[in-house]
Design a protein around this nucleic acid. Sequence first.
DNA 1: CTGCCTATATAGAGGCATGATATAAAACTA
DNA 2: TAGTTTTATATCATGCCTCTATATAGGCAG
Lengths: 167, 167
Amino acid sequence: MEYTQQSGARESDAPATREEVAEALERLAFLAVRHLTNRDISFTAASTLGRLSREGPSRLTALAADEGVTQPSMTQLIQRLERQGLVTRVDDPHDGRVVLVAITDAGRELLAERRHGRTNRLAELLATLPPEDEQALATAVRAATPAFQRLVENAARARKSPGNTAS
Amino acid sequence: MEYTQQSGARESDAPATREEVAEALERLAFLAVRHLTNRDISFTAASTLGRLSREGPSRLTALAADEGVTQPSMTQLIQRLERQGLVTRVDDPHDGRVVLVAITDAGRELLAERRHGRTNRLAELLATLPPEDEQALATAVRAATPAFQRLVENAARARKSPGNTAS
DNA sequence: CTGCCTATATAGAGGCATGATATAAAACTA
DNA sequence: TAGTTTTATATCATGCCTCTATATAGGCAG
């Protein structure tokens, strides 16, 4: 748990501790959530649609487990999405108990619209910055993207099998 | 609206477009909602508590406007928070209509706990990265912070008076 | 005092999550 | 095969959170 500041590649005076990075990322996340969130459907609904789009028809319980909600919640969510025409339910011929949920074309369209909406909003926001600031953000993003990608993967792994912070 | 890639400080081959930055922020928002969210109180509740902590006792309608929800929603939210002992309501002696909402010590404690929880979770996540990745994130975060700060300010301004992307 | 504006509350509806429990199909088990 | 258990999904009751529409009450202008 202890963290001693490694010396190297330090040129400024501010201490770039792990906690400092964590707090800065928190502020970033707050903005993103605050100004990028669509209010039309819930986060779980959007995430579930995205999963169905990426991974194809899935069982209710599998969706519930993957999204971290209970099975009754997922049942209700799927019922709402079905009412909105965003998903369909098909019986599994091999197992009379299961229901396979699949995304519809309307669901895919909604996903695409949401993605465009967010990107456009953010692009407009970025356009309000002076060019140096935008350049600085672009450079930082490109430098951080590979590491951040691994961070996200580790987070997903930690969610599936919690309690393995040290290997 | 058009965006031509400015040449300068470019050393890699990937195009650092505005859309690339937007996507990175989107992924960050997803990580935050997915892995950093506390389920004890809602986002609006936490944000309102934070505002009360920073700005002191406020009117219901002011809170509703600042948080971007309707007045009845804020009334209900404040009722719940009062039931939980996180805020108190005081009558304004100068105006019999208004109710001033103030955060309690318990509310401040909850805020601090949430902040620590998030920071710790993020710090644990950062600890799973190889040192080069962590260093890269630290450097990127420090480089991006000033520009990002201005982005946040612009975003808040845009929220209050929409439709003024160009000044 | 009358009438309007403002600040807050209430009512009703729906989305979104929960835990507890019901139902039906599949899979064991004896 | 009959009985039990497990698995997949649904239903019910509850609470949070938001909305729109509307009510109440205080402040203020004439």
